[in-house]
Design a protein around this nucleic acid. Sequence first.
DNA 1: CGCTATATTGACCGATTGGTCAAAACAATG
DNA 2: CATTGTTTTGACCAATCGGTCAATATAGCG
Lengths: 219, 219
Amino acid sequence: MTADIANQENAGRAHIEHTILRAAEQVFAQYGYRGASLQAIADQAGLPKANILYYMGSKQTLYVRLLNRMMSRWNAVLEDITPESDPGRVLSDFIRTKMVLGQRYPDGSKLFAAEILAGAPFLSGYLAGELREWVASRAAIIGQWSRQGKMDDVDPRLLIFLIWSATQHYTEYSAQVTGILGKEMLDNDDIDAICRFLEHVILKGCGVQLSSEPRPLSP
Amino acid sequence: MTADIANQENAGRAHIEHTILRAAEQVFAQYGYRGASLQAIADQAGLPKANILYYMGSKQTLYVRLLNRMMSRWNAVLEDITPESDPGRVLSDFIRTKMVLGQRYPDGSKLFAAEILAGAPFLSGYLAGELREWVASRAAIIGQWSRQGKMDDVDPRLLIFLIWSATQHYTEYSAQVTGILGKEMLDNDDIDAICRFLEHVILKGCGVQLSSEPRPLSP
DNA sequence: CGCTATATTGACCGATTGGTCAAAACAATG
DNA sequence: CATTGTTTTGACCAATCGGTCAATATAGCG
């Protein structure tokens, strides 16, 4: 139905690829890997189907490329925390960052969700490898916070899962959320209210002292 | 690959339909509506494809039937709460019931998730109608608990979303959870630990007093 | 201009899609 | 036995699937 205007004449290679990736992300997000067709992607991009294959090689290559692009967008999250970090700040940032990422890349997030739902046929290696290591290292630091008495003694991995699920819900289940709340879509105020709710419940629930840290007195 | 043994000779109509529904639930859960093929469902059920259509009429009828069956399984949840109920008990039960339902019907849950992910083309009416009313009525009661001082003043609808997302995560993202935790699948002890974690964080986060209600003294 | 390299795309391929149909097998009743 | 109604299922249909290919158009450069 809605075809991108891909026929800007001076469209360089990078620009065309970007158009294709964006269209494919939408279609894959909605229908999953098997349910998506190259024809639907081509229509969405406003290009002939053979052109998609010329640039992307195959359906699988295109799909994997989208998965990798989405994964790279998550790199910044929780990256520079230390045993000395303030749990309140870190968890609060974690919640807001995840929430914003979901709003910024809804199709990429849904694409990822559909892949996991299907049993992660293309991502099982990543999940049991890099991501597992990442979670283990973050969990180790959070565990130290607990032992320092900065927060309750909860399983850090379950805490990470909780923040993931609670935030992703609003992108992947957006159809359900908007249907129930009776809104066409969530605006910035809604997102902010959700973030404040999640901060309240999760931080308080983990026994994190809200570091409304006393402003250093000017000397 | 794994074909159900559908050729028990005395298979009555109900039994055959059950076999088909179970097979279809698996395939739809994994590939979504468009990605699932009747041939794959037939193979899974161990029946010829034409037989599936003889009993179910069409792919869409079969799919809608599965959606309705899954929805009916959720009927008991949060059904009999009142303004006088104990929030701690109710929320705790809510968490555990949702968790158990996800473990009992993983394919149905995934099927539902895939439907929402695709934009809920078959469920938009239900979401904006019955389910919305259901949430509104439950939220009204939870709101009264807040006004009675039994818990913090949080948006009850967001609290419901939080419990939904946090519990569903372990069925719909089971591939990710097991990959990260390094387990083949979650056992009963895992589920119990998750429930206790969620109870701890969510109840405490909402300011619900744990009703370790003093046992009434025997007269 | 001519020559080469890259893009574009309609036509086509075998395989698979959801669905139909009629012939056959079976069950129940007389 | 014959007759009726219900299941079963292979064969088949038009449409679509992912992918190939060759003919063509365009661009860059001498």
